[in-house]
Design a protein around this nucleic acid. Structure first.
Length: 488
RNA sequence: GUCCCCAUCGUCCAGAGGCCUAGGACGCGGCCCUUUCAAGGCUGAAACCCGGGUUCGAAUCCCGGUGGGGACGCCA
């Protein structure tokens, strides 16, 4: 049974990179019938907050990445907050000290910083000098007697740390390049290295799928696994997501929080599809559009590419539109509700007695919208009689001398229609154009401005049909007046 | 600076020695459709970082260089 985990630190919202890591873990678990664990790494009390935990949970829920064990779900290895598992880390650290695999370090952060700065000024890379490793018994006893605060450092053994990475292959680090890292801070809290390993061991994690930025931490982890005699899990380090400038994606690049995209009108299914294909490929075939369910059926770690990937919002837009196009009318309508409400265009009968009309409207709008936020501005004229007039359009299509007569004629022709469907309307408009010796386009453009206030809209005949005979009549007449006013 | 990772169109990917005249997608250009804008169809421009090997044959394997990224915290 495969067990994977996503282990975010609640020091910020769920960002794009974390979301993709979570997605890969989730897909891997679902693909192999494994368990997806969510563990909150809140051992940095200073920077962690409950609010951020909620933010991360919201992000995961929005994406649909439900976890099998973790906050609010629980499981055999609860609790899933590291701040509630401190005893376990302390025990592991003490065990390492007892076994001579770690030692107490009495150097203060200030001293270390000074020594580090000194070494760097001299042009060398600083590595802890093991000052406290070779303390004589007397000094050590004295320190202990006065209960001097101390951290616990792992004693890096000679040799090398190597591991098999599922996406990179064999990776070797010379232990000489690894310093005696702190595993337990002087305040009794574990550092990341200790807590991840301790938890991954206890939670029986079999595959660690995480960002590339952890690759240089991995040898430390391997050393810890060995020190406590635990089986080393499989690692898979996935490439990072970069901004357009090829730098690691960060706030500088604009929206990086997943929920920010939700607020911008993106669909979670589009985000999932897009993220899945950022750094991963199903291999053969040219298909790019997938649902989450489809992805869980084909996801394979072997399809992860080696190089970093640049986040391309234009492609996200495309995915978003494609997924919107595939939503059922009811589903689309449901997602749109908050947006139309915010625009003051919503009313409950849109999903009740007027649903057929509403769905038809959405059908016309959805090929023109890339995001959910675009429906209201695009289709406002369907829902409200207060048109947002484009002055240039009025001047061009309504103000000309012939415009009034043209519209009057069209209006008269439409009034004769038995049925107010697109085909009948089109026939009537074209016939009117012929009768008046003008191009149909002239009437169509004037009609469009009359009905929508703008020069851009869905097909005029569909628009007119959906607006209905009465509203069309009223708007055309209002437009004639407006045109006359603009002329004067 | 040290260590590690990576390297195919502008971007995301395909390519696991001959199938490559290097394929798809986004974006960009053109054409078609057409009442505008989209969507859709067709189509064009656009890449194997460089240098050495190995091989009958290399985008694919090896070495070096260059370039990019990441890590070097009592952050995670």
């Amino acid at each position: 049974m495969f067990r994977v985990r996503f282990a975010p630190s609640p020091t910020g919202y769920l960002h794009i990179g974390g979301a993709r890591t979570a997605l890969f873990n989730w897909l891997f678990a679902r693909r192999h019938g494994g368990v997806f664990v969510l563990r909150i790494e809140d051992t940095d009390a200073e920077r962690s907050s409950a609010e951020m935990v909620e933010g991360i949970l919201d992000g995961l829920r929005w994406l649909g990445l439900e976890w099998d064990e973790g906050p609010k779900v629980d499981g055999p290895y609860a609790p899933y907050f590291q701040s509630e598992r401190l005893e376990s880390y302390r025990a592991m650290a003490e065990r390492l000290v007892e076994e001579g695999k770690a030692y107490r370090c009495y150097c203060t952060p200030e001293e270390l910083q000074a020594r580090r700065a000194e070494a760097e000024a001299a042009g060398g890379a600083w590595r802890y000098d093991r000052a406290c490793c070779s303390l004589d018994d007397e000094t050590r006893a004295a320190y202990e007697a006065e209960q001097r605060p101390h951290a616990i450092r792992f004693l890096v053994p000679p040799g090398s740390a190597e591991f098999e990475d599922l996406v990179r292959g064999h990776i070797v680090f010379d232990n000489a390049n690894i310093e005696d890292f702190v595993v337990l801070r002087s305040d009794g809290y574990p550092t990341y290295h200790l807590s991840v390993v301790a938890d991954d061991v206890e939670m029986k994690i079999t595959h660690v799928v995480r960002g590339d930025d952890h690759i240089s931490n991995t040898p430390k982890h391997v050393l810890l696994y060995r020190a406590v005699d635990a089986p080393v899990p499989q690692f898979a380090h996935v490439p990072l997501i970069l901004g357009p400038d090829k730098k690691r994606l960060s706030k500088r690049h604009g929206a990086t929080s997943v929920m920010e995209y939700a607020r911008q009108g993106y669909l979670p299914e589009a985000m999932v599809n897009f993220l899945a294909l950022l750094g991963w490929s199903p291999g053969a075939g040219d298909r790019e559009l997938f649902t989450a369910a489809e992805l869980t059926a084909i996801f394979d770690l072997r399809g992860i590419s080696g190089g970093n990937a640049v986040f391309n919002q234009e492609k996200l837009d495309w995915f978003n539109q494609q997924h919107m196009l595939r939503l059922s009318p009811l589903e689309l309508a449901t997602r749109l509700k908050p947006w139309l409400e915010a625009a003051g265009l919503w009313s409950d009968d849109l999903l009740e007695e007027r649903h057929a009309w509403f769905f038809a409207v959405l059908e016309l709008l959805k090929v023109r919208a890339k995001r959910l936020d675009e429906y209201a501005p695009l289709g406002r004229f369907f829902f409200s009689d207060e048109l947002d007039w484009d002055d240039v359009a009025v001047k061009k299509h309504l103000a000309p001398d012939s415009a009034g007569d043209n519209l009057t004629a069209v209006s008269a022709a439409l009034a004769e229609l038995d049925t107010f469907d697109p085909v009948s309307i089109e026939t009537a408009v074209r016939a009117t154009a012929d009768a008046r010796g003008v191009k149909a386009a002239t009437l169509i453009h004037a009609m469009r401005v009359a009905l929508t206030g703008k020069t851009v809209s869905p097909g005029l005949f569909e628009v007119a049909s959906l607006l209905g005979r009465e509203r069309v009549r009223q708007r055309v007449h209002a437009a004639i007046a407006r045109g006359a006013a603009a002329r004067a």
